[in-house]
Design a protein around this nucleic acid. Structure first.
Lengths: 148, 148
DNA sequence: TCAAATGTTTTGAAGTTCAAATCAAATATA
DNA sequence: TATATTTGATTTGAACTTCAAAACATTTGA
């Protein structure tokens, strides 16, 4: 009999990678020539209250230098544009092009379908205890200090 | 108010990455010069019923070629050894060296502590509904077809 | 003003992964 | 039994992701 810890461990080690693969393959099938990490960058830009390099990099948990590299290619491919903050011209702000919004919409649709399939299979949609527990787990990690 | 889907989405996109980072940093603090993916390879070897290249690569969801590369460096570093299956000399079997068992023990201890901290914080240890739900979620992804 | 701090980019290196080519051993078939 | 095919693994070259350190630009503070 597995303990809760072992199940959580399994989720962390195996499942996460599998989901990334599934989503990556979906992108390919849909003819979208972006990797999952590029999608994550676009998502972070989309959700950013403050769309500056530092702020987005922090959300993604990568260095600003790494983000610059990613943003360079996304710009080349026409998914984003850069502009300077007029208040502070050191700051580079990023905005999504229409092309990016389209891709995010398509990706969200797939993601929703996948989650929907899970719920259909598991019948957990109305499971209030699960919802509460997951919310707490998510909250826990959200606030967990990322030493740096 | 977030929906269950949004919470799951958050878990998938943000939280798992964060956990990988946390665990990776713990390795560094402990003076272990291995990446999380190398740890995953060692774990897969450790748990393998059939410790052959093909079988381990399949568990990890990577190609056998990629695993060969990983195994080469783990061998260089003295964490594993290779030998041929005497029944079928094409097959290469992998075994862990003591060094690897030590690292896995240390890693497991940290992982347990982390999970323990979560449970202490969340008080979900005896939450049977959560356990059942997580088990089903894990099971779902385990069987999800990885098209290849 | 100019030194320090802050925000970003560039660069070089390391790690991960894949696909394709190659090699080695086992199995099937003529 | 020879040899063609299949199966298991390795090698190689390329792409991608990421980081750290150096460099650059702008702002802020003494």
């Amino acid at each position: 009999m597995q303990t809760t810890k072992e199940i959580i461990n399994e989720l962390l080690v195996e499942i996460f990678n599998r989901i990334l693969t599934i989503e990556g393959e979906a992108l390919k099938r849909q003819g979208i020539k972006l990797s999952m990490s590029e999608i994550h960058v676009l998502e972070a830009i989309n959700n950013a209250k403050d769309p500056s390099m530092t702020s987005i990099a922090q959300k993604l948990g990568i260095t600003v230098g790494s983000l610059t590299v990613a943003v360079n290619t996304l710009f080349q491919k026409g998914y984003i544009r850069r502009y300077h903050d007029e208040e502070d011209r050191r700051r580079v702000l990023i905005a999504l092009e229409d092309k990016a919004f389209q891709v995010l919409r398509t990706h969200d649709e797939f993601h929703d379908k996948m989650i929907h399939a899970i719920f259909e299979d598991l019948k957990v949609e109305e499971d209030e205890v699960l919802v509460q527990s997951l919310r707490r787990v998510a909250g826990f990690f959200k606030d967990y200090p990322v030493s740096e």
